[in-house]
Structures are given as structure tokens and as C-alpha cells.
Nucleic acid binder design. Structure first.
Lengths: 247, 247
DNA sequence: TCCAAATATTGATCTGTATCAAGGAAGCCC
DNA sequence: GGGCTTCCTTGATACAGATCAATATTTGGA
């Protein structure tokens, strides 16, 4: 995730998946086979798509919206372990039980593939397996980058890191390129941000206010964020200049 | 990592890789091809195998010893993002620059494959790619499990979580099965433990002392740990009974 | 065998974030 | 349009873990 490669291109608003996430190199025949085992599902904000431990009937890609992968301890402490943006893939071929709880944080449309036939296809279509390996390695990098955020950054740096990811993603989506000013809608509540960052929602709120007071971001309402100077934000995040993303 | 599947079986002390990590399903011909592009390298404790950003000439599997993947911020804050145990794989086919710094925490022997020919082999040998996908998914699960530890657990729970992982791994290696008492050598300094757990080394030391005082562990010297009651330790780690590992 | 360096322990104090608590703003249904 | 409900902000206080500091133990080399 957080990878430009995973963003839906403008010319496939219908199903970005077929073009990018799974079968960038599929021929017509292979696409037809995928179409056969594919179906769409919609979820509304707040809905849980699957619970950790559930049997998964499908693997899927996000067509639109944002979903969160979370792990929870017995006493209720919750950690978000991943965020699914359009074109991200969820599900683990070869394992039937879901490892995490998946919750829609906005309205979400998923493109699902029935698991068994998809696994068969993996075996017979090396470049699909290859693409999946590439995507999984990207996610592993993202998860490890996030470990640094969770383990070593201050609350302010954590917030800045999250905003930087969202600002870049949105800029890429909007294709407004290298414009200095970035403006986007937060797809997460303060509580969801806290769960992603290993903080409490009060601390998130305070740090958002502090970043606003210091002019690092401009807040209109609670969800609309403008970043007047991306460099400044990255600085606040403690990232060594480019944060590992191609731009 | 932290996966039983990745442990060297007793019958291939020479090179566990060929049997498990990469080519569990290779035929003689394929093994011969792998042998051609394979060589061994030794590193002594404390040595850095590669720096983040370095060009990697090879991908590799750990034959023996323990190595750490770390990320560092400009000001020196360091986070360990992975620990390489025997039979773990390191390197990213398709990308030449190393994403993390890799450091030997004990003496280490690696089984290296030259990168270019290995990538070729991946393309022509689907089950190797498949095995790699499986391993990468395991690592992703481990990384995400660790995100919960970093983001939400207390210092005491973090220490207990780390000890639990090491205790299980060692028990599996020693094949002493379900014996209640587990005894092993810590392959990490207090500082390395701190870097793994997102703590300071003083806090690690204090919590180790506290766990010792409370009878959760018995310490002989600084590095030899005995766990009289694994259940108790898992309890201290806050894990819901089995911590996600098969046993 | 002794010394120096590396590693670990323990204590005193400080501080960033959690926790507890009280409103305030925005959406949404009747 | 009033009154829920949900989400957010802000303040006061507490505490876990960081930091600063001193000492102890182990290791390795001459």
C-alpha cells in the first residue's frame, strides 16, 4: 500500500483491478477466466467486511473507498495494521481463515474473486502470482516502515507521517502532480487515526490542533485538510526527505 | 518469520535452504541450477551485511545465526523491523536497492544466490515463486503482529512477547516438544531488544529484572533464560492463548 | 592475571502521553 | 427546527517510560 503503482488509472473507473492489481499482463482469455469468478460487493461506512478468524470465501481488491485492517486484544486495545486504498488487495491465497478484522471506514466497493478458483488460476498463470508477490512485498515494506513510526516517533511526528501519506496519495489520485499545495479529505475519524498510530484520540486531536496552530496544516471543518507546504510536513514527520515513495 | 515451517530440519544441517526456504518442490535439475548460482558467506557478530540503499548483488537465506533488519532516522533513533532466523529469506527480487540495514547479531552464515539469475529462475520456475509468496505472506503476518506489540502493549508485555517468540523458536529447534520448561540463550543484547521493542535499554533491563523477581523467568548470567511456565509467560504477553503460531 | 571496554543493572528525576472529565459542533431523524 | 447522537476539542491530573547518572558485571586481549 501507499504505492503509486496501486492507484487506479483514470481509464478504468469501472474496475481498476483487472488492469492493475492482479492481471496487468493478462491476455483476453485470462481476463475472461477472471471475469467468470469475479463479482462486486458494496459495504457502507462502519460495516465490518470480515472478522479475524472467519472463513474467507474470496480474495478481493478495493475498487473505491477505504477499509482498515485491525487487530484487537482481549481487553479491547486495538491496532490498525493496514489501510486498504483503492486497488489494494486483501486475502491470503492458500489460507482460508482471515488473519485480521476488515472494516469499511468509508463506503466501499470490493471486487471479489472466489477463493478456490482464484488459487487454481494462480497456479496456472505465473504472472498473476508474480504480480501478487510484488504487491505483497510492497505491503511488507509499508508495514515495516510503519513499525518505525509506531516504535520510535513522537505523537506529532506520527500524525505528520499519516497526513503525509494521505496527502501524497490524494495528490497522485487527483493527478495535480507536483503542486505545492495539497488538499484532501481525511477518510478516518480521530479514533481510527489513533488506532493506526498507537495513540489515544485525545492526543490525536491535540496534535492536529497543534499542527494547525503552527501553520503546518489548515483545517476546514474536521475533515478537510490543506497542506500549504509538503516539505514542511515531511520535515515534521521526521522522514529523511522522501519517505521512500517514488514521486 | 517466527514460523515453524522455516526451521531447518535435522537432516540438512549443511544447507537448509535448498530443502525448505526456496525449493521444497524442486527436482534434481532445478536444484542443480540453483547450486550453480549459489555461494556461502560468513559474517561475524556485529558486522553489517548490507546498508539500506546499497545495491544488492544477491538474495539469501540464513543458514545459521541471527541477523536483524533495522531502519534508522537521521537523529539516530533505530527500529528493528525484522529478525532473521535460520532459514529466513532476505532480499527483494525485482528491486536492486536494499530497503533495510542488515546486521549480524551473532555469527552468521548465509546462503546467497546471485540476484539476476535468481530472478530468471523465478520466472521459469513457478513453484519457487509460489514458495516465495508464501514466505512473504508469513513475514507480512509477523510484521503486522508486531505492529500490535509496538503500538499497544506495555513495556512488560513487550518483553514477554519477545521472550515468548524466542522460547517457542528454541523449543522447536531443540525438538523437545511440549516440555513445560523452556531454556534458551538470548541472541540479542539489551540494546537490540530495546530497538526491537521500541523501548530504551534501561527499560528493557528493568522489566527483565521485574519478570525475574516475579518468577516468570529465571535468569542465569545475562543471556541464559529459563521459562518455567510458558502459559504464564504468554499471559504476561497479553496474547490470546496461542499467539497465532502453530504448535 | 590483570586491565580496559563493552554490557548490564539500578536509582533519581523529568516529561510526553494517557486518563478522567466537561463541553462544543455537526449531522440526522422525527 | 428541536433534540438526539456521534464526533471532536480542550483542560486538569496521573503515570509509564525516558533521561541522566552512577556502579556492577562480564568479556576479551595483552
Amino acid at each position: 500500500m501507499n504505492d503509486l503503482r496501486k492507484l487506479a488509472p483514470a481509464d478504468c473507473s469501472d474496475c481498476p483491478i483487472r488492469h492493475r492489481a492482479v492481471c496487468a499482463r493478462c491476455d483476453a482469455d485470462e481476463l475472461a477466466r477472471l471475469d467468470e469468478i469475479k463479482y462486486y460487493r458494496s459495504f457502507s461506512a462502519g460495516q465490518t467486511l470480515m472478522w479475524a478468524g472467519d472463513t474467507m470465501e474470496f480474495v478481493a481488491s478495493v475498487v473505491s473507498g477505504v477499509a482498515a485492517l485491525t487487530q484487537t486484544m482481549e481487553d479491547g486495545r486495538t491496532q490498525m495494521v493496514g489501510i486498504l486504498l483503492p486497488s489494494d488487495f486483501v486475502g491470503r491465497p492458500g489460507r482460508s481463515a482471515a488473519a485480521y478484522t476488515v472494516t469499511a471506514t468509508t463506503d466501499v466497493v470490493m471486487c471479489c474473486f472466489r477463493r478456490k478458483p482464484f488459487e487454481q488460476m494462480l497456479l496456472s498463470t505465473p504472472h498473476v502470482a508474480h504480480r501478487l508477490l510484488e504487491m505483497t512485498l510492497d505491503e511488507l515494506d509499508a508495514a515495516r516502515e510503519w513499525m518505525l513510526v509506531l516504535g520510535r516517533k513522537t505523537a506529532r511526528e506520527k500524525i505528520a507521517s499519516l497526513l503525509a501519506i494521505l496527502a501524497r496519495r490524494d495528490a497522485a489520485l487527483a493527478k495535480d502532480g507536483s503542486g505545492q499545495t495539497r488538499r484532501f479529505d481525511l477518510p478516518l475519524t480521530r479514533e481510527a487515526m489513533a488506532d493506526y498510530l498507537g495513540l489515544t484520540l485525545e492526543t490525536v486531536s491535540r496534535q492536529m490542533s497543534a499542527l494547525k496552530r503552527d501553520g503546518v496544516i489548515i483545517l476546514e471543518g474536521k475533515r478537510n485538510v490543506t497542506v500549504p507546504d509538503l516539505e514542511r510536513l515531511l520535515d515534521e514527520a521526521g522522514d529523511d526527505s522522501d519517505g521512500g515513495l517514488p514521486s
